[in-house]
């Protein structure tokens, strides 16, 4: 294993830790807005991980996945925020 691969494995663990913390905030709440913020952060971290995976697995396909995922996540967050704003529970 080369040094570059070692660093990438380390990055993989750090990404996993970030995802876990975000997930913890999502589970702990305490209210819907907190979960929404956690979702927003998690989606961007996930986009980041997808881009990293493209390099890690050496496949440019994941870049398209990351882009489309980013677009859909953004639309989802906006829609959920709208629901909070207008007060539908």
């Amino acid at each position: 294993m080369t040094l570059a691969q070692g660093i990438q494995f380390l990055a993989l663990f750090v990404f996993a830790a970030a995802t876990l913390l975000g997930l913890l905030r999502f589970l702990l709440g305490p209210a819907t807005p907190d979960r929404l913020v956690a979702t927003d952060t998690l989606t961007v971290v996930a986009t980041s991980i997808l881009v990293f995976m493209a390099a890690f697995l050496d496949s440019a396909l994941y870049l398209d996945v990351a882009l489309v995922y980013g677009v859909l996540a953004f639309v989802g967050v906006i829609a959920l925020a709208r629901i909070i704003e207008t007060g539908h529970k």
């Binding site: 040094l3 990055a11 990404f15 970030a18 995802t19 990293f52």
Partner: peptide, 17 residues
């Protein structure tokens, strides 16, 4: 490149923290 990715991962972790 790997170091940049690691720094990026650390910032993601910081955000989650």
């Amino acid at each position: 490149g790997s170091l940049f990715i690691l720094v990026g991962a650390l910032f993601c972790f910081l955000g989650a923290l």
